[in-house]
Design a protein around this nucleic acid. Sequence first.
DNA 1: CATGAATGAGAGTTCATTCAT
DNA 2: AATGAATGAACTCTCATTCAT
Lengths: 212, 212, 212, 212
Amino acid sequence: MTADPETRLRADARRNRDQILAAARVIFAAQGPEVPMEEIARSAGVGVGTLYRRFPDRDALIRAVAVDNFDRVLRDAKAAKDQESSDWDALIRLLHQSMELQLSIQLAMVSPRALVILTSDPAIKALRDELLLVMEAFVRGAQAEGRLRADVATGDVAILFATVLRQMPGKGEEVARMATRRCIGIMIDGLRAADSNEPLPGRVLTAADLNP
Amino acid sequence: MTADPETRLRADARRNRDQILAAARVIFAAQGPEVPMEEIARSAGVGVGTLYRRFPDRDALIRAVAVDNFDRVLRDAKAAKDQESSDWDALIRLLHQSMELQLSIQLAMVSPRALVILTSDPAIKALRDELLLVMEAFVRGAQAEGRLRADVATGDVAILFATVLRQMPGKGEEVARMATRRCIGIMIDGLRAADSNEPLPGRVLTAADLNP
Amino acid sequence: MTADPETRLRADARRNRDQILAAARVIFAAQGPEVPMEEIARSAGVGVGTLYRRFPDRDALIRAVAVDNFDRVLRDAKAAKDQESSDWDALIRLLHQSMELQLSIQLAMVSPRALVILTSDPAIKALRDELLLVMEAFVRGAQAEGRLRADVATGDVAILFATVLRQMPGKGEEVARMATRRCIGIMIDGLRAADSNEPLPGRVLTAADLNP
Amino acid sequence: MTADPETRLRADARRNRDQILAAARVIFAAQGPEVPMEEIARSAGVGVGTLYRRFPDRDALIRAVAVDNFDRVLRDAKAAKDQESSDWDALIRLLHQSMELQLSIQLAMVSPRALVILTSDPAIKALRDELLLVMEAFVRGAQAEGRLRADVATGDVAILFATVLRQMPGKGEEVARMATRRCIGIMIDGLRAADSNEPLPGRVLTAADLNP
DNA sequence: CATGAATGAGAGTTCATTCAT
DNA sequence: AATGAATGAACTCTCATTCAT
């Protein structure tokens, strides 16, 4: 009754795998996905060989980090749905709360290379689609509640989301954190249904527009 | 009484320099600042030797591209100031109009490496400070006009600006372009002084907060 | 009064040893002696650890395969001696019959590395010397019978033997097999005492010339 | 009016290319085609980078050595045809004379890897086919002359040729050289039309049988 | 001056061998 | 005793930079 292959790993192997993933998450977030494999290994406290035994090449590692991240975000999204009383509130909570979870995947997406890797992986595509479905529900619901402006769709929100969550490199830790929170705040005010809003240019962007 | 060094270049050398810069701008925008020097040279139609004669190393090239870009943005900012009737309008125009000019420098900034290079160059720092001064005037003026929300400062606006102008990699050309315009639209509505706005978290970010 | 170490092995250990040897023989024959140890282990159905417990390093494994092979050839040579009515016939039979037995050792000898290993191992040297002695008897006898040309000695025959038994890589299985048999046939006709033979160049090569 | 790309190389580049090829020929012959690239470069008196600039990877180098070798053999074959008075003599001369030229290509062919590389290269295939054509003429002619046994065809001769020219690794330089010459001598006697010959087993092997 | 060849340090990856489970 | 995980040295290949032509 053993499920996914990860379960079959010996205890120590499992631990190493997790350490590598954690190290990669942090390092990718800080320096992008092109850092020397050796550095990731060292920071995970293992030899390169071990890293390569777990992840046959850099692409595999990037994919694994991405999957891990999508999992987390998805968990958050479901929690938001369950615990918030309105779709608008769930959307906002997701934006605010996922900030840190998203951090590394956002950075991973900054590299053209990573982009190619991720978009060509069916497992990741599936996770992404699942997330988009959840968001779509939030968007529709929040619009029905009259709180989200009507001239946007899931694609718009997702892009805004992705854009803002992309951390500014450099700057002190504290300023960076605050800047992100404030940007999100401004953006939320921009998303709010309000008489003062100008009509947006072009056409509504849907989830389908996010596919390459 | 020799003018700046660029002026002293022979016509063909000058042409080479410009071609290299143009090629680098395009390639940096498309693939980030880590592309092989040889590729840049080839795309500029010169040999690597020539590239290195003009720019002693990669950092020098990145700096030159950045300077070139800041120049353009600054020119735009001044035009906006001269031609628009209010500071709010100038700010909005700058946001919309600089979109394309900013494109390459934004991408250059995506690389942690480029960041370090740029922030440590006094010439670029000077250009950046000059730009911030202009923006500061816009921000103050627009708040005085009652059009820009009062709980933001130049730092907030600059960061938002930088965040949104960072292009989404992948996606079709058309969607990318539209997405950016719509994000800017939403952001502008978020920046607008309005009763519906929630107070922003943390403290106001000033131009000073942008220094590392 | 313990017999040789192999006898002391537990039944399962013994089985493992044999499987490894068999697998190595096949793989060395097919791909040369540089294949990853892991691949040999896998093909033998054991873990690498087990392989290394039995054979401390690659050289030991190569040596063991070689010993195993010399044993077989020697057995064949003795059978030929016992069962054939003349030395010439015994020699020919050995050439024809050993073809397949020799196959893997010949391939093993293709690698300069294997060569060094084998020639420096006293046990293998002993087996080889024993084989050369048997061949020497065949050669002398066949010459006394007037069937083997007189201007060759054991060294010549052994080298010819080794040369021809070295399988052509590539080619279909069937062609390869036939090519070897036909080459052997031509060689045998060349070895035959005949008036049409040209005198061979240089000097006769003896068994002693085979030592490095 | 510049012909092949090699002609376009700058004088120094050309010299380096030749040195690399010469070094590779010697080293491949002595140690097989798996030696570290660095060793080849060192032995050619250049840096690895230079080696890689000329030959993008090991396969390309192996191919180049093979082409170079086929060229030489082909030249020899044509000279033999022009200068010898009979096809039988031309064949024998080719066997004897090409001994050294063939040396490295034969060794290159010993590695399964090299085999794959070479057989998949159309340029090399063309050279090989050309050589086979020349040999076919020799074989037919020598049979018409009544000097070459009638029960062989080009495939048989080529394989014999290739087999014997494959140098024995190890052994002293002098013994190796002599052994090869004597093996060739024996083989030639085996090829000679003679009443004492036994009929060969199987069927005649033609040039077509040499294709994989 | 422009060019592109040469160099060599460094990154990615593999694999022999050791060792914890 | 068997297994397969971990290690790190060795090797391949790339590319920034220098230098001969």
